[in-house]
Write a protein that binds this DNA or RNA. Structure first.
Lengths: 327, 327
DNA sequence: ATAATTAACTTAAACGTTTAAGTAAAAGAT
DNA sequence: ATCTTTTACTTAAACGTTTAAGTTAATTAT
C-alpha cells in the first residue's frame, strides 16, 4: 500500500538497514548514500511508520489526557497548554472526555495502556474508585491533590482559595454566605468547601448545612440550585460558587429572582475563565493559572518519561482573588 | 517488561496463535481453552498491545482532529461531539491545535499519517496552502466548504448566515452597518462577508470598505478593532461580527466608548457559543449546531473508514438567527 | 609488506500481534 | 471397516521498523 523503507532499499539495491540508518542520520552511513536515500524517499513521498517504530523502540511519542469535559473552559485551557507543550517535544495527545464518570476514567486508562502511550495526565473527577495501581506508565494528576497511588500532582491550593473567597465576602459584610458546589465527591470541591468552613469558623459564623448545596460543575446546575433555594425562602447575601460556571448560573438565578448584584447578593466564583472578565459579567473570582498548570503538568510528565527514576516534587500553585463587580 | 500473549502461551503450554484466537473469541478454539486463557490473562493482568495489532491489521482505531484552537468554545464543542461519537466505536482521537497557522496544519497532517491514524477531521484555517493531495487516508473537512482536493465536508451555510444577520440589522433600522471579521483568508469568514454584502446590496445600501474590518477570531481583536474605529470617528449603528468572541469584544468596546446596546448600536454575532445566552450578555447571534456538526463529521469519517469506496454527500446545515437583546 | 584500524555497509533477529495454511486426532458417514 | 469431515489445535510468515553483530574493502600505521 504505502511506501516503506523496503521500497527505497529495493530501488537503491541496498539493505533496508542502510536506508533506516541513512534516514536517521547515523554516522556509519556515507554522506553520498544518505543523500541518495533522502532523494528517493522524497521522490516516493515516503512517510515513516511510527507504529512499526513504536513496536521496536517501545515508545509511541504519545500521551493520554483524561479530563471530565473539554467543553469546560477550565479544562480546554489546560488541554491547550498540555498539547502545545508536549508537541514541542514531538509528542501527540489523545483527548479523552471522562464526562464526569469514573467508569469512563478507568476504561480510558485501559485503552491508553493498550495503545501504549508513554504517559498519562489525568484530571480526575475525584472518586475513590479511580484505579491506578496496576498502571506502570508515568502518570501526572492535575487539579486535585488527593493521593492516587502516590502519583505526582499539579494543583492550586483549593482550600486556601475557598478560604480567601469567603474571607472576602465576610469583609464585604455578608452575613448569610452560601456555598454552591459541584459534585460532592470531587476532591477539589471538598477542599474549597473546607476553606469556606474555615473562613466562617474563624470569623465566628455559624456553619449552616442549609447553606451548603451541591450539583455538578455546569451553569444550569447553579441556576437550578439557586432557584430551589429562593423558592425555599432562603435569601443569602453572599454566595461562594465552586466554579465560575456555577457562579454564572447563580447570577442568572439571582437576577431572575429580582436581586441586585452586588447590592443584594455578592457572588464569588472560582477558576477565572475567560468570560468572567467581560464587563457584562465582571465576576469576582479566584484565579487559577490554568495555562501554567497545564504547562507544569506536561513538563512534569515529560521529565518522568525521560527519567523514570528521579522523582519529582509536587506543584501547588497559589490561588488569587480577582476583585470585580459581583462582590 | 509488560505481559504479552507469549507469556500466557508459555504458562498454558500452547502456541501463541491459540492464545490470540482464544482472546478474540474465534470459533476454532474450544470453550475450555478459551476459559483457561482468559483466566491466565486475567491473573497476569494482560493488556493487549494495540501497537503490535495495528501493525498487522493496518488499522490503529485512532483518528486525528486538527482544529485552530481548542480553547474556542466553538471548536471545543465540535471536539467533544467528535470524541464522544467515535469513542462509541472504539476509536481514540489525537487533539491537534493548529493555532491558526497553516504550517502547523501541514505538519500535523504529516505527523498523523506517520502515526497511521485511520482518518482525519480537520477544521482548516482556510489557506490555500493546506496540502491534502498526497494524503491517502480518509478526510473530512468541518466548518468550511472551500474545496480541498475534493474532500467531503460538513458546514453550515455561512453566506446565508451572514445574509440573515445583516438583513436582521437592516430590519431593525440600522443605517451604518459594519462587518468585523476574523482572518481575511478564512473561507467561512469570506462567506459571511459575502452574505453581508448581498444583504446590503439587496436593500440598496452602499458597500463602504471603511465599514469592513478584519482581525482574528478572538475577543481582544474585536475590542481593538472597534477601539480604532471609534477613535477614527466612525460610529456605526449596527455591527455584524464574524463570531461571538469578536462580538463580545465589540460589545465591550462599545460600552467603553459610552454607547448603549442596543439603543445606540446593535450587534449580531455568529456561532451561539454557550455564553451568548447569558442574560448579562444576551447576544443576538447566528446559531451553528456545533454538536451536530461534530457528530455528522465523525459519522461521515467512520463511514469513509469502513467503506472507502462509497462516496458521501456533503452536509450543509442551516443557520438560524437567535434574537436576543443586543440587536 | 603486513598488521591493525576504520568506513560503509549487510545480516538477521527482535518488537507483539494476527492469520492463512497445515496437521493430527476424533467423530460421522457409507 | 474405510473414507470423509470436523474439531482443535500448531506452524510460520507477515506487518515496518530498529539495532547489535558480522563482513568486506579501503585506509592507516609500523
Amino acid at each position: 500500500m504505502s511506501v516503506t523503507i523496503k521500497d527505497i532499499a529495493k530501488i537503491l539495491n541496498v539493505s533496508y538497514a542502510t536506508v533506516s540508518k541513512a534516514l536517521s542520520d547515523r554516522d556509519d552511513i556515507s554522506e553520498e548514500m544518505k543523500a541518495k536515500v533522502r532523494k528517493v524517499a522524497e521522490e516516493l513521498n515516503y512517510k515513516p511508520n511510527y507504529i512499526a517504530r513504536g513496536l521496536v523502540k517501545k515508545e509511541t511519542k504519545t500521551i493520554g489526557l483524561i479530563i471530565p469535559d473539554i467543553t469546560n473552559p477550565f479544562y480546554s485551557e489546560i488541554a491547550m497548554a498540555i498539547e502545545e507543550t508536549v508537541n514541542k517535544e514531538g509528542y501527540s495527545v489523545f483527548l479523552c472526555n471522562s464526562n464526569w464518570k469514573n467508569s469512563n476514567e478507568n476504561d480510558y486508562i485501559n485503552l491508553l495502556t493498550s495503545k501504549k502511550v508513554d504517559g498519562i495526565i489525568i484530571a480526575p473527577i475525584g472518586e475513590e474508585s479511580l484505579n491506578l495501581e496496576s498502571v506502570d506508565i508515568p502518570i501526572v494528576i492535575v487539579g486535585t491533590k488527593k493521593s492516587y497511588n502516590n502519583q505526582n500532582y499539579v494543583v492550586i491550593d483549593d482550600e486556601k482559595g475557598g478560604y480567601i473567597a469567603v474571607k472576602h465576602l465576610i469583609k464585604q459584610n455578608c452575613k448569610k454566605i452560601m456555598f454552591v458546589g459541584g459534585k460532592q465527591n470531587v476532591q477539589s470541591n471538598k477542599q474549597r468547601l473546607e476553606g469556606y468552613k474555615r473562613a466562617l469558623i474563624e470569623s465566628n459564623y455559624e456553619i449552616n448545612e442549609q447553606y451548603i448545596r451541591s450539583g455538578n460543575f455546569k451553569q444550569e446546575s447553579g441556576y437550578l440550585i439557586m432557584k430551589k433555594v429562593f423558592n425555599d425562602g432562603i435569601i443569602p447575601d453572599g454566595v461562594f460558587a465552586g466554579n465560575d460556571l456555577l457562579a454564572l448560573g447563580v447570577m442568572r438565578s439571582a437576577l431572575d429572582f429580582g436581586l441586585k448584584i452586588p447590592d443584594d447578593i455578592k457572588i464569588v466564583g472560582f477558576d477565572d475563565i475567560p468570560f468572567a472578565s467581560l464587563p457584562e459579567i465582571s465576576l469576582t473570582t479566584i484565579l487559577q493559572p490554568k495555562y501554567k498548570m497545564g504547562e507544569h503538568a506536561a513538563n512534569m510528565l515529560l521529565s518522568k518519561i525521560k527519567n523514570p527514576e528521579i522523582n519529582c516534587e509536587n506543584i501547588i500553585l497559589k490561588p488569587k482573588l480577582i476583585k470585580r463587580k459581583t462582590g
